[in-house]
Each structure stands twice: as structure tokens, then as C-alpha cells.
């Protein structure tokens, strides 16, 4: 059951990423290019995505997930170095190629070898990230 739900969610996510234009790196870079030909499409995508999500979060109150267990608790609002440093590094990479993890997987099947190079490097980055993360958490005490 968990796997079927995850697969269906993935189908919606992947389809939505293509329809929204977020697998087009020029549109993502256009969103970040405030000093050039700024493209606001990403705001519509984010806004659209938050509508079903906000409804879903409201629905979770007092309920449990379909497969059982419990819904994720709201995280501790503590803002550590890892959140800021990680987001800055991510933003820099996001702008450099116009790709974040979701669209990279969604366009892997039709985007050619560049996508495979990007994803390979991303997986490498994810593999070494725990080393940096541990250092940053140590600094936070």
C-alpha cells in the first residue's frame, strides 16, 4: 500500500513538474534573473502547489495517515547554521544549472546526457554532505 501511494504521488509530482515548465531550466533561471528578463512563472507553480498542500495539512489535524502511524510533527523552529549555509549552497547550484532535485529526476528520461551528469554530481554531493553537516552542527553546539 505504501508503495502504491508513493508511486501515485510520484506520478502527480513528475507530471506537474513537466506541465508547469519547471523542467525547463531557462524558466527557473529566468525566475532567479531579477536583473534580466525576469520570469515569474515559478511563483505561480509554488502558489498552485501550496493550495492542495495547505488543504492537506488542515486535513491532518486530529487524523492519522491512511497507512497508519502519525503525521510528521512541526519541526523545532530552531534556525541553525546548517539551514542557512545549506540553503545558500543549494540556491547557488540551483541558479548555476537551473535545476533542483525534483525536476532533475523528472527530466532524466528525456533531457539527454546533461541531466545524467547533473544527477550523478548531485548524488555525489549528497554522499559527502553528512561530513559538512556534522561540522556545522558541532559549531551550533
Amino acid at each position: 500500500m505504501r508503495n502504491i501511494i508513493a508511486f501515485v504521488a510520484g506520478l502527480f509530482f513528475g507530471g506537474g513538474l513537466v506541465v508547469s515548465g519547471m523542467t525547463n531550466t531557462a524558466k527557473v533561471q529566468g525566475w532567479l534573473d531579477v536583473f534580466g528578463a525576469w520570469d515569474p512563472t515559478l511563483a505561480f507553480v509554488m502558489g498552485g502547489a501550496m493550495i492542495p498542500m495547505a488543504i492537506a495539512w488542515a486535513y491532518t489535524k486530529g487524523r492519522t495517515p491512511v497507512v497508519g502511524g502519525s503525521f510528521p510533527a512541526k519541526p523545532d523552529p530552531k534556525l541553525g547554521r546548517n539551514l542557512v549555509v545549506g540553503s545558500v549552497l543549494f540556491g547557488a547550484g540551483w541558479a548555476t544549472a537551473g535545476l533542483c532535485p525534483g525536476p532533475a529526476i523528472a527530466s532524466l528520461g528525456f533531457g539527454g546526457s546533461s541531466l545524467w551528469i547533473f544527477v550523478a554530481a548531485m548524488l555525489g554531493g549528497m554522499l559527502i554532505a553528512p561530513i559538512f553537516k556534522a561540522q556545522l552542527e558541532k559549531m551550533d553546539g
Binding site: 501511494i5 504521488a9 507530471g15 513538474l17 506541465v19 507553480v45 501550496m50 491532518t60 502511524g69
Partner: peptide, 26 residues
């Protein structure tokens, strides 16, 4: 493009809602 963005966004959010309500995961 904005309309496709909105429609695609609704699909993305629906995926997130299914994953959350179904599996209890983000």
C-alpha cells in the same frame, strides 16, 4: 506559461497531499 505553471503547481501539490495523507510523509 503562468496558467500552465498554476496547473502544474496544482498537480505537484496534489502529489504532496497524496504522499502526506497516505503515507504520513513529507
Amino acid at each position: 506559461d503562468y496558467i500552465y505553471g498554476l496547473i502544474g503547481g496544482l498537480l505537484i501539490g496534489t502529489g504532496g497531499a497524496i504522499y502526506l495523507i497516505g503515507n504520513g510523509r513529507i
